[in-house]
Design a protein around this nucleic acid. Sequence first.
RNA 1: GGGCGAUUAGCUCAGUUGGUUAGAGCGCCUCCCUUACACGGAGGAUGUCGGGGGUUCGAGUCCCUCAUCGCCUACCA
Length: 1100
Amino acid sequence: MTTELPAKYEPATLEPAVTSRWREHKAFAAFPDAREHRYVVMMPLPNVTGALHMGHAMDNVMQDLLIRWHRMRGDNTLWQAGTDHAGIATQAVVEKRLKEIEGKTRHDIGREALVERIWEWKEQSQKRIIAQQQGMGCSCDWDRTRFTMDAVCARAVRHTFFKMFRDGLIFRGNRLVNWDCALQTAVADDELYKETVQGKFHYLRYPLHERKPGEPEHVIVATTRPETMLGDTAVAIHPDPAMALRAAIEAQRHKVQGAADKERAVAEQELERLLQREQELLPHLIQIAALAKQGRKITLPLTGRTIPLITDEWADPALGTGCVKITPAHDPNDYQVWQRHRSIGAINVLNGNGTISAEGPYLGLDRFDARKQILRDLQAQNLVEKIEDRTIEIDHSDRSKTIVEPWLSKQWFVHMADVDGGITMGAGTPKQFRSKGLAQAALDAAAGALPALADGNARMQVRFHPDQDRYRKMYDQWLAEKRDWCISRQLWWGHRIPVWRGEMQKQHLLMLESVLQGQLRRDDVAAWIVLPDGSRLSVADALLALKREGAPATVEVQICFRDDTADATTGVVLQGAGLELDPDVLDTWFSSALWPHSTLGWPDPLSARVDPGQPSLGARGDNQSALDYWYPGSCLVTGRDIITLWVARMVITGLYNLGDVPFSDVFLHATILDGKGERMSKSKGNGIDPLDIIKRYGADALRYVVCELQTGTQDIRLPVQAISPFTKDGEPEQLIDLATAKPGPYLGTYIDPVTKQPFDLVGQYGKQGLAPAKAVSDRFAVGANFCNKLFNAARFAFLNLDGASFTERPLASLPLEDRWILSRLAAAHANVHGALSSYNPAAAIAAAREFFWGELCDWYLELVKPRFRDEAPAAERALAQQVLAAVLDQTLRILHPFVPFLTETLWQNLCDLAPVRGIDRELEGSALLVHARWPEHTATWISEEADSDLKCVQQWCAAIREARASYQVAPRTRIALRIQASGQTAKILLRGQALLAHMATAESIAISPTQERTRDSAAVVVGDGTAFLLGVVDLDKERDKLGKQQDKLRSQIASMAAKLGNEGFRAKAPPQVIAQQEATLQGLRQQLLAVEQGLRDLDH
RNA sequence: GGGCGAUUAGCUCAGUUGGUUAGAGCGCCUCCCUUACACGGAGGAUGUCGGGGGUUCGAGUCCCUCAUCGCCUACCA
């Protein structure tokens, strides 16, 4: 059943066949068993928003590389696949389509219908993503694929929320958030981007309330957002403007002194401005500060309100007008001021949709319309001092591309900072321990500072690769801030926040208590009572507190059940009592943070409701549950930007739920940039779809190059080209380099430099008549070349392997070239293994390539060719077959993690032709290469003698080839060689004579100490000997060449002799360095002698 | 403003703790369609290691400084 290998390498036909073979054999399925060694990778779950890009390709290939390597090493290997519901992103995409296609908003169709549509989108999207990953060769256990909103993950989310809520780590607070007025939800800092816009800086006059003679009429404040004045609750002035301004001036003076010439002018100008301010503005500011201290007020225009003039250090006399309006509900700094002056209060003047909510003439106006109207009204009252143009950087929502507003609203938070008395991590597990707080636990995990386990063993530490110091610093810096994590989103797509809450009269609370009496005592219900002042009490404490005099009449009740089934039963009772289930959903990262344990069935693998056809997560027979067996995992592979967003949060929840970190290692791979060094993005049209690369070059080529790109911490520039859409039929495809192509009329379009026509890389401008084009990168040709070479090398082997067999042979019985290739193979194996161990795929693949191409193909395959000729003795042929089969076997294994499709294909052919393989021992076989054992114990194949002997042959061969080329001897012309050599060199050359003759295309070769140059021969000095190429005459050229060599040797000898003659060097350099240099010098001197002899010979 | 990182051949990148004459792939030049491979073979050219200073017997590698370019982070009332 020999599988014929096609004549040409065609990844497009070969790869799908391998994919289906792997699928048929369920080759990647993982089950807990008795094996001690495990390797677990949790895939950074891609969004179901859209298709994968090159960043994902890098991420997936790196993971697959590690996974395949560990699987071959015999580890019980799990690669957990899945996708993320990506709340805001996915909802935004589906809403946008709804608007475009049907002209409807989410409110037109309602919550249920929208969520249904998003599920449909998710199904399609997930299918496409998995197809892409399978196309890349990802060897995930597809039967265990999870989704952050499926039943298994949802239960973990619910339980975690419940636990944190019960422990008081989740709370609802009135805070400023970034508000997306278009999507009407809070968005996280990482969902923002900054954009510089042309704005205006408005100077507004606020009249002084109850002004007395001699006092200023107005206090002037400046703002870029005049409409927020409706929400002003104070105007602030620095308590000691003179001192503050003086300090600023001194600081600026200092800066001027230290400034470089180029910056000095700017710094001096600034100093000048401050000094002028001190002269002109300061007296005024001092006066206002005095008024503030008297408790004077300001009349807030247009509203009829009076607001206090306060002193606060936030007001900087060096900036703006020196006085600042305070709008706590719409500005983060003002919010901070409010925290210091609680009595001023905060007024929210915006509705969630960005319209004005403040009672009065502006009610209902959009915030930008209100801005214009307010300015007009202020101008009518002569309250606008001046308006300046100004460029401002404004936060925009990445999802809706609209300006976000700081907005005071009630949101849910996870308390990250330390807690009085600390918290229990991994409560109820054998790994339970105490920590000061959630963020601190994650910091300790990376510092190796977690308390030891109960059995005395150290707890696992999280380490970063390939630069522990640098990446840990990023992790530490972010976590050290211990900022509360806003987890609520005002969306419909996501995990609903499982809290029943509502206002309640205190007498009703007593009733509620009796209604829930049975429930509240149980440990699957948690409840908090929040008093109007924001303080949070247990139900029991609240009942006591509310009995006191002056207790508030109403309170907020918050109740959370551990299991969602209770929402339908007890929830109804709560509803009757006026409570409602919170309408918000959780931040996507909340469920992502649980991924390493939610996917394994936490909190109870046995009862986890996996999808139909999926393996149970519970314990089976003697084997542990998926959770017990595979948690904690091994390595998380991701990009730098994810360290804070995700890695830290996974560590936190892992420690909190299970008392252990989710993984021991974090491998941060590079970011892929385009040819200009810019981040790839869909909208810029410089992004590459991995499937386009696979179609053009093959998945193995994609993988090969991606591995080659991952060198260390360096980000990667990947030049991007568009496939020209203007190529006529029959012409070869043209590539247009995007780094040099001029941009077209729209973002993501470019101009073809040949036809001068615009084309479209984002596929959005078909209506405008732009031709669509695909983006690729010719860098991937390198990978295709490699695969083609591998294919052909194997094909050559297969042509000669018919009838190959295995006989146990001692290594010493093998000829030089066989011993050498085995030795090189062993070295390559060690190098690849070492590079992979240190997370250096580029070094690994370079070592593999150097062996395969530079040694196996360039030398060994050529060296064995004579042994496969018809006239060669049968025994020689059989031995060559055996060695070649064994070498190919090991080579395919080593290359498999990098280029799995091709190696798997070739493996089948190899197994057909040479079912049993080995040299001094039989190699363990395997039906599929994906399950074959990674090479082991190859160290016994290393032979320093074979290495150096063959290296000697190679050196002579190279020198002879160089001479042939420089004398323009045709490659096929066989020449006669005389080699003058003695001692060890002669011995080696005599042994390798046949090899040398073959590789140097010599018809005859004579080696001895007494060989001499003939008049018609060229001489080549190699080490301490000389080769004469007979029949190659050109005395002038020869003289010239030897003369150049002589000059070079002399200069080298001079510099080295000088170095060795340097007393400092002799005294201070380590002895082995001195010895090495002396040996080199000795060698150079010998060469020089030979060259000089050659020059003398020419004259005879 | 603060922090981190980068700058090596035309291009994309290696270069371990300082130690021979700084490497690879692609591209380029010459020759070759030799019965595995032209997605190939043989040979070749190409570098003031961003600039300047310093430490050292010795610097691409360590220190200082300047320039340019990234990334993160804060602020701009």
